[in-house]
Structures are given as structure tokens and as C-alpha cells.
Design a protein around this nucleic acid. Structure first.
Lengths: 310, 310
DNA sequence: GTGAAAGCGCTAACAT
DNA sequence: ATGTTAGCGCTTTCAC
């Protein structure tokens, strides 16, 4: 009944007689005793907690990724401490806080970690994983490749007057998707697409789509930097301009969210495989060693009715 | 430069000279020192961490609620440790684990906490909040009232041959929405609605809708226990059966998710105000005292085109 | 295989 | 206002 014995009883491979262990576990059961993980972490230096910072908690992709990550981590007996950056708090403040909880690693679904703090994380042995951040370990969908595949596809379908709707101007993700698309056109000796700026959300995308569709000559197809904007554009084209989607106006997105496959929309898109991305993130998160790596998880072109002519 | 002085420097209202505090904070800055919250929690008995268990991480409502809660909690300097119950782990195991981390409270978005463990949580002073669990503190949308309002509305619009699509049979939420709906019909002396069982998801709902719409006489309106099923039913009716939604076939849901308001669907529904519900949850979570309370957060009927005749 | 003692990093009395 | 001491609940040498 010594303190050490109890500790050993709860430690998987400890040197303790089976009888003693059983006795201790039994007593714990009836007394309602459970080891205090805080105290354990204090000694061990590892908490089994992964810190996650979400910059835009309203953006469904991040939530899906969070859920997927949580499922993965549970399997490894690790857990997730969530911080959301809404309402003025900078990412630095949140990460600083996370470090105080002595998290084993940080997963950043937000931009804006300052290089000095990133440096400190490295020094303290806390790996930082992010979608897009120089200096950190990154895991990404194939933004460049996807953009290019979409451009290629639209041209193959005979669309000639192409438009592009970007996400937030400062978003690296958006810029990569745009670059993939535009560079492909340039490589074919074609002029750059008509460009409008969405901000990844529905409202702005609707405005941008209205503006674009009112122009003459009207573009005959658009590539939007994410599916949400593409669906907004599709709705505007169909319901407000009475265009037949696909034949009169092609729409393509990026991400392949569930909605894209609904028959009502049948949106052509390039997939961003949440599961695949998170699998890789989990892998890196669980393996502290290693230099900054940059993984690109390929998706695939999903050909649907929103870009089929005739 | 004593240990206690440092502690005081980092404690908001402690008795310490401004000069000393400045000096300590300054030194900490350059040395990269940050207090260890684990050690602090070990003494204080409070961690500032709220445990959240999500039973169905694929169900968007829970994710939205999680995001909303995280934002609320950040403001109170509390944080969220997320556990997902996918792949066989029981809620009991997860809550047990949460208790080991000495969380200040538990928010359960999952069913299945055993009464003995619930009891233990109470004894240890860890409040348990849930959407639907006897014995615990609960916060809910107005399932009963909403179901009734929908029934009332459908009748007022002249629909006469009503159908109902439930969620999971074991879901209390689904049963309440059903009861609100059916009881209203009964109170009007009308026969019970035709009843099909969905499982809250799209696939099952599509099957159920197909089956229902093939019957003779065909129902002229349906109430689905959530918006996702309602949208699935709407799509099937419109695209597979060629019905004019609203005039020939009325569709109503529950929840008022973003999609419901999209012009493509324009789904009539009774709102489940995520923000309102989570506001209340946060309130209870932050205030440990109090007996089991049961809050019902009212929503409102959203009249849209999916239930307008003529 | 088991117990005694030391210590993880902090805060809370209690002095001064 | 500051330093000293004790102790939060655990794991880890080190004896036995």
C-alpha cells in the first residue's frame, strides 16, 4: 500500500506482482481513485496534449479537420486542446498560452505566428505543424496541381473565356490555387483569366459573381478558389441569370466538400482530402523528431455536370 | 528574485511592488520563462480546462457548437479539451480520462454516460452539462415547441396528408421533435402522420423519401427531424419525382442550418439557435454552483418556399 | 517486488 | 512588500 506501489499498478510495464496490482486496482475501483495526470505530466515533461489553434472557426474545413484529428489522436491516447482566434487575440498570444500548458505539439490552422515565437517553440522541443507557414512543418493539399488540372479541364471542354475568383488576397492557399490555374493558361499561350476577388465566403462570392456575369463579353466558365464560393457563383448564375450550368456557364471549385456531390449542384472540383491531410498531420504530430518537412497530399479532379458542355 | 516573488509577478492582483513585477516580467521575457500551468493547476485544484465529448464528430451541428463554445470559453480564459467517441470507445471511458486531467467541467455532446460515473462527477465537483441526459444539467433547443409549430403551420397551409421522418430511434432529440409534431395533430383530432425512420443522415433520408413518395396516396407534406434529412427529401422529391416543392409537396426541417436559407432550397424550418444554446451552456459551465437545471432555448419558425402552396 | 525519500514547478500560509 | 517553508500528487532513483 505504498505510494510507489500504486504508481506501478497504473504503469503498464512496471515491475510489480500481479497480485499486488490487482489488489491496488481493485481498491482504486471502489474508492474511486484515478491517477492525477497533471502531476504525472509535471514529472514526465509530456502531457499527451496537442494544442490546436483555429483562426477561422466558422470555416467548415477547419472544423472537419479538427474532428478528424481528434479521432486520430484519440487512438494514440493523445488529446486536443482547442484555441480559437476570434476577436482580436493574436496567434502569438494563443500559442504562448498553449506552451504554458506544456502541450507536446502545436497544430496551427491559422496564420500569423511570429518567427521569434516559432523559434522558441523549436527550442523548447514543441513541434509546430501548419498548413502554410515558412519555417514550420507543413501539410497541404495540392493547390498548385489542382488549379492546373482545373484549367486544363476547362480548356479541354471548350471553354474559352475563363474567369477566376480568388479567396482572401493574403491567403497563401488562395494564391497557390490561383497560380496553378493562371500559370497553366500562360503556359498554353493564353491570356490571363478575368479575375475577381472573393474572400472565401458566400456573400462576397455572390457579389463578385453578379458583377462578373454582368460584364460583356460574359465569361463562359469560372474557377473559384473554394467550393463554397463556387456554389454561390453557381446559384447566382442559375437562379439570377437563368444560365444553364455547364452548357452556358461552367463552374469549378476546389475542395470537394460534401455539397459538391449533391445532384442539385454536381460541382466539378479538385479534391482536398481532409482525411489524407490529417493522417499526415497526425503522423508528424506523433513523431517529434525531424526537420521541417513539407508534405503535399494530392487530390483528384472530380468531373461533374457543372462543367459539361452540350 | 525569490520563487514566490516570481509567482506574484504573474498573479494579477498579488501584493508586489510595481518595480519588482516589472523587473521579473522583464527577466522572464528575455529568458523565455513562462509559468507552468500544470504545476499551478496541481495546487489550485482548477485547471481552466473544460472537457468536451463529441459522440458524432461527423455531425456538423456538434462541430459548430464546439467552435462557438471555444470562442466563448476563450473569452473567459478557459480552454477546451476535445474527446471524440468514434470507434468503439464508450463515453464512460472518455469521461474517466477527462477526470484524470482534472477538468473543471464536462460538456457532453454524446449519449451514454452511466449513472454511477455521473454520480462520481457530481461528488468530485465536476459539473456535467449535456443536451439530453437525465440527472445532468441540460440545455436544449425547443424540440417540442418547434415540432408543434411546424405541424400547425403545415395544417394552416392546407396540407392534409402529412408525413414524418424521424432521426435515430433512440435519440431523445428526435423523439421530442416527433412528439411535438404528432401531439399537435392528435390535439386537432387528426390521424397520426405517416412515419418513416431516417437516421439523421443524408443517405437514409434519401431512401426513406423515395419509399414514402412512391406510396399511394402520396403524402403532400413532410416534416423531417433535422434539416439535413429535409434537404435530402427535398432533392429527391424535386429531382427524382419531379414534384414542385411547396405547391405539390411541402417540406419542413428542424434546425435552420445555413443551407436552409439558400435560394436553391428555401427550406421552411424551426430554428435551433446554436449561439443561444451555447451561450447558455457557457454560462452554466462557468458557474459551477447550482442544481441540475433544464434550459430550453426557444427558436423561431422560418417560413420559406418549401411549404408555400399556390 | 516493494518501500523510503527526493523532487517535478508552482502557490499558500506564515513570518519578517 | 518580500522571503521561507510546506506541500499539491505523482514518478523515480535507490535501498532492501
Amino acid at each position: 500500500v505504498s505510494q510507489a506501489a500504486v504508481s506501478r499498478a497504473f504503469t503498464p510495464g512496471a515491475s510489480i506482482a500481479n497480485g499486488t496490482r490487482a489488489k491496488v486496482l481493485d481498491a482504486a475501483q471502489t474508492l474511486g481513485y484515478r491517477p492525477n495526470l497533471l502531476a504525472r505530466s509535471l514529472i514526465k515533461g509530456r502531457t499527451g496534449i496537442i494544442g490546436v489553434v483555429i483562426g477561422s472557426p466558422r470555416y467548415p474545413f477547419f472544423l472537419e479537420a479538427l474532428a478528424a484529428l481528434s479521432v486520430r489522436m484519440s487512438k494514440a491516447d493523445k488529446h486536443i486542446l482547442v484555441y480559437t482566434a476570434e476577436g482580436g487575440t493574436t496567434v502569438d498570444v494563443l500559442v504562448e498560452d498553449l506552451l504554458q500548458y506544456r502541450v507536446d505539439a502545436v497544430f496551427l490552422m491559422a496564420a500569423g505566428l511570429s518567427p521569434p515565437l516559432a523559434e522558441r517553440c523549436r527550442n523548447e522541443g514543441v513541434p509546430v505543424i501548419s498548413f502554410n507557414m515558412r519555417g514550420a512543418i507543413t501539410v497541404n493539399g495540392d493547390n498548385l496541381g489542382g488549379g492546373a488540372r482545373i484549367a486544363e479541364h476547362l480548356l479541354a471542354q471548350g471553354y474559352r473565356n475563363l474567369a477566376l475568383m480568388t479567396g482572401l488576397e493574403e491567403s497563401i492557399t488562395s494564391r497557390e490555387r490561383e497560380a496553378g490555374f493562371s500559370d497553366h493558361l500562360a503556359a498554353q499561350g493564353l491570356p490571363p483569366p478575368t479575375r475577381v476577388v472573393g474572400r472565401f465566403d458566400r456573400e462576397t462570392a455572390q457579389q463578385a459573381a453578379r458583377e462578373l456575369l454582368s460584364r460583356t463579353p460574359r465569361p463562359d466558365a469560372i474557377f473559384c478558389a473554394n467550393d463554397h464560393m463556387a456554389l454561390a457563383a453557381l446559384e447566382v448564375a442559375r437562379l439570377e441569370f437563368g444560365l444553364e450550368i455547364g452548357r452556358e456557364f461552367g463552374v469549378a471549385g476546389f475542395g470537394d466538400i460534401d455539397l459538391a456531390a449533391w445532384p442539385t449542384f454536381s460541382l466539378t472540383t479538385y479534391s482536398l482530402p481532409v482525411e489524407g491531410v490529417i493522417d499526415r498531420v497526425a503522423e508528424v504530430l506523433l513523431d517529434p523528431e525531424g526537420e521541417p518537412t513539407h508534405s503535399v497530399i494530392g487530390g483528384e479532379l472530380k468531373l461533374r455536370d457543372s462543367t459539361r458542355r452540350g
